[in-house]
Computed example of a mutant assay.
Amino acid sequence: MLYRVEGIVIRSMDYGEGNKIITICTENAGKVGVLVRGAKKVKSRHAALTQLFTTAEYVFFRNGTGLGTLNAGEIMQSHHVLREDIVLAAFASYACELLDRVLQDEETGSFWFQQLKACLDALEDGKDPAVIINLYEMKILQTAGYGPELSSCISCGMDISPQEERYWVSPRLGGVLCRACKHLDSQAMGISPRTMKLLRLFAQLDLRRLGHVDVKEETKAELKAVMRAFMDMQLGLNLKSRGFLDQMEKYGL
Score class of each variant (00 low, 15 high):
residue 72 A to W: 08
residue 50 T to Y: 11
residue 14 D to V: 06
residue 132 I to D: 11
residue 195 T to P: 04
residue 36 V to Q: 03
residue 36 V to H: 01
residue 83 R to A: 12
residue 34 V to F: 01
residue 190 G to Q: 02
residue 18 G to M: 01
residue 59 V to K: 09
residue 131 V to H: 11
residue 39 A to H: 05
residue 196 M to L: 15
residue 18 G to L: 02
residue 61 F to I: 08
residue 78 S to C: 03
residue 123 L to Q: 00
residue 8 I to R: 06
residue 166 R to G: 00
residue 223 L to I: 08
residue 107 E to I: 05
residue 206 D to F: 01
residue 32 V to I: 15
residue 79 H to W: 12
residue 195 T to Y: 02
residue 112 W to S: 02
residue 180 A to E: 15
residue 77 Q to V: 06
residue 5 V to D: 06
residue 132 I to S: 04
residue 49 L to N: 13
residue 232 D to H: 13
residue 174 G to S: 01
residue 116 L to H: 07
residue 247 Q to T: 06
residue 243 G to S: 12
residue 236 G to M: 13
residue 110 S to Q: 11
residue 247 Q to S: 02
residue 153 C to D: 13
residue 126 G to E: 10
residue 220 K to Q: 15
residue 75 I to P: 07
residue 52 L to E: 02
residue 107 E to P: 01
residue 209 R to F: 07
residue 234 Q to Y: 09
residue 104 Q to P: 00
residue 135 L to R: 09
residue 116 L to G: 04
residue 138 M to A: 09
residue 219 T to W: 09
residue 250 K to H: 10
residue 242 R to K: 14
residue 205 L to M: 12
residue 97 E to V: 07
residue 246 D to H: 09
residue 162 P to Q: 06
residue 75 I to N: 08
residue 170 S to L: 00
residue 65 T to L: 13
residue 36 V to C: 08
residue 94 Y to G: 01
residue 235 L to Q: 07
residue 204 Q to S: 12
residue 131 V to P: 03
residue 245 L to M: 13
residue 81 V to H: 10
residue 68 G to H: 14
residue 42 V to K: 15
residue 43 K to V: 03
residue 136 Y to S: 01
residue 132 I to E: 09
residue 176 V to A: 12
residue 139 K to H: 13
residue 67 L to D: 01
residue 212 H to G: 01
residue 127 K to N: 10
residue 157 G to V: 02
residue 218 E to W: 04
residue 165 E to I: 01
residue 192 S to R: 11
residue 236 G to P: 13
residue 172 R to Y: 09
residue 126 G to A: 11
